[in-house]
Simulated scan of single mutants.
Amino acid sequence: MGAGRVEDTFNLVGHALKKVLRVVADQQERDLVEVAKEAKVELICESSLKAALDRDWDQQIQKDEALGMVLNVLQAVETWVQTLQQEDAQLAQRSLSVAQQIQAQDVEVNEQGKASLIKGMAKNRRISVEDPEMRHSRKSRSVRVDGYKRHVLHDLDTGLIRAVGITPANSPEASVTEAISADLAQQAASLEELHIDRAYLSSHLVRERGDDLEIYCKARPIPNGKRFHKQAFTLD
């Protein structure tokens, strides 16, 4: 899998903490395992923290125990970083901040001090250690999108792709059209017709369009249960 892979909470924290150890090991020209032993977090050296924990993830009790262990490892690394020389600590802090961010977005602690994973998905949740802009989104209840959305402006007359935009997966489609318009302006190109998905109807291209721009968009279906809908009738 790529460096920007999507991981769950356990492996996100483990990945970020391994980066903390790695940057210090490289700075001090030491082996990763040696540094992990010094920090008393040898568990981090495994390829997958979740696999190293070796729990039955279908059992909530074991899952909670594993979360407690991960948070203890995080605390141990935080304490260890405080013992480093200033330069090394500053280098380590960037990756440590990622682990702390994941804890803040994914973990809650009740009044009794028991930690658990937050149910549902935090707004704007970070899903990758290496790529901070990647996000979760959904096309439907059953189809999830991880990473980014690609937006393509295709010239129907020439077949050319005039502009391409990239946004985090959870960004509204309409948010990309300002950048698309800027690309068109660089080409001294203008729109006469715009064939779009309904998700772009709130974009500035539609809201601020002139009289010379025609918009084509598939209309929303009109649900009416078992009764006749308006489109079933014609006026005479």
Rank of each mutant, 00 (worst) to 15 (best):
K114E: 13
E111T: 05
L194Q: 13
Y216E: 09
D146R: 06
L194D: 03
D157I: 04
G113M: 10
V176A: 00
M134S: 14
R144E: 06
E178I: 02
L201N: 07
I118W: 05
E192N: 14
K119A: 14
V164K: 00
I161W: 02
H195W: 14
D183C: 14
L191C: 07
H204S: 14
S175R: 10
D212K: 14
A199R: 06
R207F: 01
I215M: 09
G113Y: 08
I196Y: 00
Q101N: 14
T158C: 00
L96C: 06
A179D: 01
V143P: 10
A104D: 13
V98H: 01
S137G: 11
K123F: 08
L156Q: 12
Y200H: 13
L184G: 03
R198Q: 15
D146Y: 12
S142V: 10
G159F: 12
V107K: 10
A122R: 14
L117C: 04
K139A: 15
D131I: 11
E133A: 11
E208I: 06
A179S: 02
E130C: 06
L201R: 11
Y216T: 06
Y200Q: 09
A219H: 11
L205D: 02
S128E: 03
E111D: 12
V176I: 11
D106H: 13
G113P: 08
N124K: 11
D106W: 09
I196Q: 01
Q187N: 03
Q112T: 05
G159E: 05
A174P: 00
E130M: 09
A199I: 07
L213W: 10
H136C: 11
V145F: 06
E192L: 10
A189W: 12
A219I: 04
I118M: 05
E111Q: 09
R209C: 03
K119R: 13
E111S: 07
D211C: 11
